[in-house]
């Protein structure tokens, strides 16, 4: 196989690296408590809390590192961090 080393790299290509594997706590979103304010979408450092069609929010667990910022910032306490694998 020919080794192709270019000095440039492709945009957004870190997506190949699924950082969800880093997580030890997992944010779980309770839509019953949610007011759809969108704060969790702003305050995710990975930019992976997405708005669903029904207006609620859910993280992309493939990349969520489990930092807990979204849960800390949610004004409705609608996000709880639960230990992975439980």
């Amino acid at each position: 196989m020919k080794l192709i080393i270019k000095t440039v790299t492709k945009p957004g290509s870190t997506r190949a690296n699924k950082t969800g594997a880093w997580r030890s706590f997992m944010p779980v979103f309770d839509h019953k408590l949610c007011s759809k304010c969108g704060i969790c979408g702003i305050y995710c450092p990975e930019g992976v809390v997405n708005k669903l069609e029904n207006g609620y929010f859910e993280p992309d667990y493939e990349y969520c590192k489990g930092c807990g910022v979204c849960a800390n910032e949610c004004p409705k306490k609608a996000i709880v961090m639960v230990l992975e694998g439980k």
């Binding site: 957004g12 870190t14 997506r15 450092p45 990975e46 930019g47 992309d60 990349y63 910022v69």
Partner: peptide, 22 residues
């Protein structure tokens, strides 16, 4: 979706990542 894509190696909860994204 943000133009700063996920999969990067910043620490969980990294302030620099927030800054880059904003």
């Amino acid at each position: 979706m943000s133009l700063l894509k996920p999969g990067h190696r910043g620490c969980a909860g990294c302030g620099d990542a927030f800054a880059g994204k904003f």
